[in-house]
Design a protein around this nucleic acid. Structure first.
Lengths: 229, 229
DNA sequence: GCCCACCTTAGACCTTTGGATGATGGTATT
DNA sequence: AATACCATCATCCAAAGGTCTAAGGTGGGC
């Protein structure tokens, strides 16, 4: 057997927009025996690109709060782009619900951003061994069944969205009109409508309001106000 | 400490749809010296009616999950109907966020529904003394400023809604069409539209989708079964 | 009684949304 | 090359959403 079971993760990808943190995490990972390369990007899109150009990547450390995307959106899209690459989510928001949602969405591990070095190391080791990692305090009990199943359905459906569709759903979840979305993305309103139709078909709903609710169920976006005026 | 003012709450109102629980809570309250009457109703609407016919009511025990309404909707409306009557929320959902949201929305106390008798008693006593009550485990630290202030704004705006408008917003938050809402409430679609226009004006938004987002911020309805932030 | 706030409605009008059809070009797979 | 999927866009159309005017009813407060 050529398998060194202790460390199967050779090529890591870090997606995080905090420079200092990236450096520190990168160095931490590089100190692990068996790790051959650590690439760092600052946007989810760059991460998706990196995954296609570096297909040998075998673990991703993902920050949930990127300039690019927010909420579980990024995780869902990343998961879709690389089904079999384990993802360890690193987030500054680390309450029970968030952890649960993240693991339900298919991440292999969750590490609070403020954790000490050895926490990252043990998470990395555990995921490398094919297990899941979550913080000590976390227990997976209180998951009133319906919550879980409904959300899983929502995840499954959101995972079928293409990148552009996800972007558009994101803007819908900010309360924008098709016209505004078209302007933001520099495409025709007709195109937006086509995407919206496709989104609703995939989510199995009949109106954009219902699409927002599905997205909310899955914490797809950080439903926060955009009401500038 | 003040002694004779220790019990200023003579007339209590219980709003809860669980019969056995109502009985138990009613008996518990009646066992308190100084409590002269305890009225029980099963719907929020009945509670609102009771408040207007029994103006001497000086404390309300409110369950958040009524057939009538759900989420903080009921609390906001009750608060609006009786600004100065202290409200103690009794809920089976008792996580940090829910407690925080409830207290931010203006409740004087929060008691998990599964609490023992003496918890209800001490909550009642504390609120009677003009203080606020929350469970032992609860700490109001992580109040990430934006979360609080933005949500407070949302509460303020929601509090200006009339009953009918609140009902309609609730149905909007379930993804229903104006036509369906009209059918549900047995009114004309035109009327629904008029209300929707009024709601959006009060909330300061331009579309129903944005109204849903505001409602979500304030946990107005149970759109998000259990929220993370 | 009068005023005021709320709920109600009709009808006209315009905008937004959602969908159907069809067409083009790019890209990846086979 | 053929296939399939995606993104793009146009045109046309029907339905829903949203605004406005005008108006009738209720009930409470002064």
């Amino acid at each position: 057997m050529v398998v060194e079971t202790a460390q199967r993760l050779s090529h890591a990808l870090i997606i995080d927009d905090h420079p200092l943190f990236c450096d520190a995490l990168s160095m931490t990972l590089q100190s692990i025996p068996g790790v051959q390369s650590v690439k760092t990007v600052h946007l989810l899109q760059d991460g998706l690109d990196a995954l296609s150009t570096l297909p040998q990547t075998d673990v991703v450390m993902l920050d949930l709060n990127l300039p690019d995307v927010s909420g579980l959106d990024g995780l869902v899209r990343l998961k879709k782009a690389a089904q079999d690459v384990p993802i360890i989510v690193v987030s500054s928001l680390a309450d029970q619900r968030m952890i649960k949602a993240v693991l339900q969405a298919g991440a292999q591990g969750f590490v609070p951003k403020h954790s000490k070095r050895d926490v990252f190391l043990s998470a990395f080791a555990k995921v490398g061994a094919g297990e899941r990692y979550h913080p000590d305090g976390y227990v997976d009990v209180p998951g009133s069944a319906d919550d879980g199943s409904e959300r899983k359905v929502a995840f499954d459906r959101l995972a079928t969205l293409t990148n552009q569709q996800a972007r558009i759903l994101h803007l819908i979840c900010e309360g924008k009109l098709n016209k505004q979305i078209a302007y933001d993305l520099s495409i025709a309103e007709t195109t937006v409508k086509a995407h919206v139709t496709a989104i609703m078909r995939k989510l199995g709903v009949q109106s954009r309001t219902q699409a927002v609710l599905i997205a909310g169920q899955a914490r797809f976006s950080n439903i926060l106000p955009s009401e500038a005026s």
